[in-house]
Design a protein around this nucleic acid. Structure first.
Lengths: 358, 358
DNA sequence: TTGAAAGCGGTACCAA
DNA sequence: TTGGTACCGCTTTCAA
């Protein structure tokens, strides 16, 4: 029961045990050329026996790697991408033992200026890039050129599945849609109609949500009929008008699923028609203007896409690869949080500044 | 627009700029005694101007800190504490620049053997300890003795709020209860009765869940009446018998909230009475035996307490303090995941081995 | 109050 | 195929 001298084992100890020099030990451990196979296997065995763990601080001091990472993210929608950037920053601050420079590059919208910005940074020789692919087919060639230059690409918030990206982190869109359908199906007991309001069905994410919604509605809520799928192209005005038009055509839908963050105009249109509380509403993401409607019950639930966590995970995945060569899960599909009235308080803390002070 | 030579700034550069030696720079930067105040302020200004960032790899190599951390966790309930340990392991593996030894100490149950084990490790001079406080009042004095010795204590899965622990990570128990009440209130439209089945109301976590449940039921679901609160002390047999007794007293409750992982016997009792699907059931946590009941709809929702994430966060909080002296949020209250049929697939991947292979 | 120098544990280069 | 050694940036000791 005496203490087994948990002394630290380094290449020096291995060298001493093998009666050779540390140079040879290093070569053997790393499969470098020019080592007698017998020596190598002997070294490996001793290292194993002694429980050798390389001192990562020493290694990174010597190698003195300096990782240059750039994050290409849109400015809009700020309530989503600001916390995502925050997550990247926090993960970057927590990194030990490697110096990581993170540069943020911002363009107005998905699909608006992103390609040009990518073009510019192609020359800059970054070690890694985080990006949100807008139009997958256009972005694919850009991604390929980065990876061919040796820049690792991680997609965040949306994916470009057929590209050469190293990994992707996003919320599972199809399941987001499924959850919305299940919730409506569970809450609404009698037959009725439901509608969805989305951005642009060409966007992978939006299409997936609708597919998940429709599929689950069919299986888990056959008493509900999907009557309308409105595309609003992220325009508040369009969303407002479309909602009014919807109510004209169908005076009392039982439920509406808004699958983008563009839900405020929908709420307004419903309110003005006295429909709040009479139609079950499922929205997407969380931002200040949404809070009162959740608290009042006007919104049954909002599906929170956890931008902060997405940013953090994407950065960690990228760094883990660049630093250790470890390739984590290539595809991470986060579960969206279902925010109701009761658990809303837990999510307010991470909202952009000012809110928690009120 | 020329590149601003982003050369690395170290104490050497500062020393050169100030025309002094690196020794003095170090003393100035760290407020060590024996530095001319004028020299110090000059050094600080230069460091600031040059944007000095200490090379953490070099620092930890020199200091050669070896953090010793021990995790005291119960074996039961394995479906919860095994993934929690896994989260600790993963976070430990991701640490760079410091050598961290993690030891796991396991005892049968909360409140069964935990104090004795703590006693033993009090002598061992750990830098930090992760633990799940069972009976808070008993554990408080143990925690105090650890912190007095300079061992940082982080509570995970449950809290000892009045102790001297550095931080705590757990799910928000009161809000878990609230969610259960809100879900039942939303799904059940007509008047009816609901019951809760818990472990032991003396356990902080269990009491909080019930309080949250009752409070939210009163405000958000006044049409539902809480008729019964059963304590099962984590015993399957007791849970089974109590459920049968409940059904005898009240043949058709509208909903039941099981606030611990001890839900399988409840399900069995319900099934044997043909009540599955006729009573809305909310359970806690996720494990293999629960899956079929979620898929079949026998369970409306289960509130997943994210053990893996809890372990990871707790470890990160502890390390961040020990390594950088940074004290993160002292109290982290995680939002439980609401698992329904539709989003269940997303949570199966992290379940203990074997499941994802089927 | 300050300077000079010895390492911490690896990696990589040059010489043998 | 191997040995020897300089060096990464920082902390710390000893000397001035």
């Amino acid at each position: 029961m005496t203490d087994g001298t948990p002394k630290t084992v380094g290449i020096k100890q291995i060298a001493a045990a093998a009666g050779i020099s540390i140079g040879t030990v290093d070569r053997a451990l790393h499969n470098r050329p020019g080592v007698n196979p017998k020596t190598r296997s002997r070294v490996l065995k001793i290292a194993e026996k002694l429980g050798y763990r390389p001192n990562l601080a020493a290694r990174s001091l010597k190698l003195n790697r300096r990782l240059r990472i750039v994050a290409h993210l849109p400015r809009q929608i700020a309530s989503f991408f600001d916390p995502l950037r925050e997550g990247v920053r926090e993960a970057a601050a927590a990194i030990r033992g490697v110096t990581v420079d993170v540069t943020f590059r911002t363009y107005p919208h998905l699909g608006d200026g992103d390609l040009k910005l990518l073009e510019e940074d192609l020359e800059r020789d970054y070690d890694g890039i985080l990006m949100t692919p807008g139009n997958p087919s256009q972005v694919e060639s850009a991604i390929r050129r980065f990876t061919e230059r040796g820049t690792a690409v991680v997609c965040v918030a949306s994916d470009a599945p057929r590209s050469s990206r190293l990994a992707s982190v996003s919320v599972d869109a199809a399941i987001s849609g499924s959850i919305a359908a299940e919730l409506l199906g569970t809450v609404l007991h009698s037959e009725g109609t439901v509608a969805t309001i989305t951005g642009d069905l060409n966007t992978f994410d939006h299409g997936e949500k609708l597919r998940g919604f429709a599929a689950t509605l069919a299986t888990m809520a056959p008493h509900l009929t999907l009557i309308s799928t409105i595309e609003t192209h992220d325009s508040p005005k369009e969303a407002y008008r479309a909602t009014l038009a919807l109510l004209k055509r169908n005076p009392s839908p039982a439920g509406i699923y808004v699958s983008t963050a563009n839900s405020i105009p929908v709420l307004r249109a419903l309110e003005e028609n006295g429909m709040c509380g009479r139609v079950q509403l499922i929205t997407t993401d969380l931002f200040a203007e949404l809070i009162p409607s959740i608290e009042s019950g006007a919104i049954l639930a909002t599906l929170y896409q956890r931008p902060f966590t997405q940013g953090k995970l994407a950065f960690e995945t990228l760094c883990r690869f660049l630093v250790d060569g470890v390739q984590l899960e290539p595809v991470t599909r986060l579960a969206p949080h279902i925010i109701l009235r009761s658990n809303l308080p837990l999510f307010l803390e991470r909202l952009p500044a000012g809110l928690e002070m009120g």
